[in-house]
Design a binder for these strands. Structure first.
Lengths: 266, 266
DNA sequence: CGACGTCTTTGCGTTCGCGCAAGATTGGCT
DNA sequence: AGCCAATCTTGCGCGAACGCAAAGACGTCG
């Protein structure tokens, strides 16, 4: 609570960058222009992403040309729940959290997305409103397409439609699983399972283990509990040695042990 | 628990009906063959369904010709969690519940589907396993397509792909909402919201209100609580008059009042 | 019609996890 | 360096909901 209140401006991811676009000094050596080396990066990113799986480098390059490169500052809002969806964002570096606000003011974090993930995936090409708000957790680099420019791309490469279905479908099954968890499992197990998922999604190698950068409150909002309970849990687990509680983060030292957490571990 | 244990046979929705297929005696009057009148019914159903939205009657008829009509008996299993998905089922009458079983044996009901809904929607055309089990809640009539026969249809009518994305996307947002609810709201509100949703999905007009045919336990499995708590809740609400607790069902007399249920209502 | 199985109700004790409050820790910023 | 705001920790009490047990209601089937 609190930290974000200042950002009251209504954002909508704009294609036009805030100044910090492609021309980041990358010390491009003689002959290779900065634009080209960025383009190559983008193509690599795209080919590895679930969204553009199956497309050739050639094709990715084509599609990349309709995109704008952007950076998002820490805590910057990409879009807000309820707004009409207009932009597709492919994350290059950094992580983005998608959270939903309920009528009674309660907030949950629905998704954490990292490098290679797509945010604002269009179901139909247009017309829908965002079901959640998106916020950069740290400085992010990303590629942004406007839906209307995407229309042609989708028409030309029907494979992307298939990939979108695939993405939607796998998100659905992940959420089904998480729904079952939050509906039936006790807090300790839920938190353990959430952490294990987060390891893969936004985990960063760190001394002594893999670090997940989420505050106690954010972890609580992912698992349907309170920051107090999370704090107590992590303290306990810290004593047992398989996690290291950090400020706004958790370092997981032993994922296997974490996976064995059961009801009696709290 | 228990009632279902007997059905140990491994099912997989078969195209070949169990005998009770198209030729239900419908007292077809002279001139109109039973087949034709069924086909007409199917086309009407399809045109009204989200899956085939936008297709002409002509086209629906074409597609219907690849389908088999089937009935499912009460408590019949359409498919089981973990099995490879092979069939698309469009519900004509009756309702089907989709439930997921966790590793520790806890079960939740993820979806309740009624007339016009599609079960086993293919994300990609094949290769995936079912994330939940499907069971007919009552005698159901349905149309069934095999995935391999569907391949051609999907290729010929790309609109269906779009519709599938649409369906997946709207299911995703419903589940996001329910996830938020189960993660943040108290039991009373969760149950009220679940009932309101069920009214639309599988509600049947009944004397004194709209009836939802779910046992206490099933209602509990939808909302992440126990049959005891549900029973107590419904008793209380019954006293207040806006619902009627019935055996394996709930009659909602005043949906507006139900929507106003808040924490202090239990 | 009566017996049985299933579903439901309700009482009661227990516990998990909430939520406040006060204090400790941390990192950023001037 | 030192202040300040944000985050985190921990103790404590309480209440929502669980979960068992026993009894009641209902429908079915012989």
């Amino acid at each position: 609570m609190g930290r974000y209140m200042a950002t009251a401006r209504f954002p909508e991811v704009s294609g036009a960058p805030d100044g910090s676009s492609n021309n980041d000094s990358h010390g491009a050596p003689n002959g290779v222009s900065t634009i080209d080396s960025n383009l190559a990066e983008h193509v690599v990113l795209m080919c590895a992403s679930a969204l553009f799986t199956g497309l050739s480098q050639q094709e990715c390059m084509e599609i990349a040309s309709c995109a704008r490169a952007r950076t998002f500052a820490r805590d910057e809002l990409l879009f807000m729940q309820g707004q009409p969806a207009r932009h597709l964002v492919l994350i290059q570096t950094g992580s983005i959290k998608l959270s939903q606000l309920g009528p009674s003011g309660n907030e949950v974090i629905l998704w954490m997305n990292g490098s290679g993930d797509a945010v604002g995936v269009p179901a139909d090409s247009g017309g829908c409103n965002h079901t959640c708000s998106a916020r950069a957790m740290e400085k992010c680099k990303a590629l942004v397409w406007e839906y209307n420019k995407l229309q042609n791309v989708l028409a030309e490469y029907p494979l992307i439609r298939k990939n979108i279905s695939q993405i939607l479908s796998s998100r659905l099954s992940e959420l089904e699983e998480r729904f079952r968890e939050v509906a039936t499992e006790k807090v300790a197990k839920r938190v353990a399972l959430a952490l294990l998922r987060l390891l893969k999604q936004i985990g960063k190698q760190s001394q002594g283990g893999i670090e997940v950068s989420l505050s106690r409150e954010e972890l609580a909002q992912m698992t349907g509990t309170t920051l107090f309970t999370i704090s107590r849990l992590l303290s306990r687990w810290g004593e047992q040695g398989f996690v290291l509680p950090r400020r706004e983060a958790v370092v997981v030292r032993d994922a296997v042990r974490l996976g064995q957490v059961s009801d009696d571990d709290y």
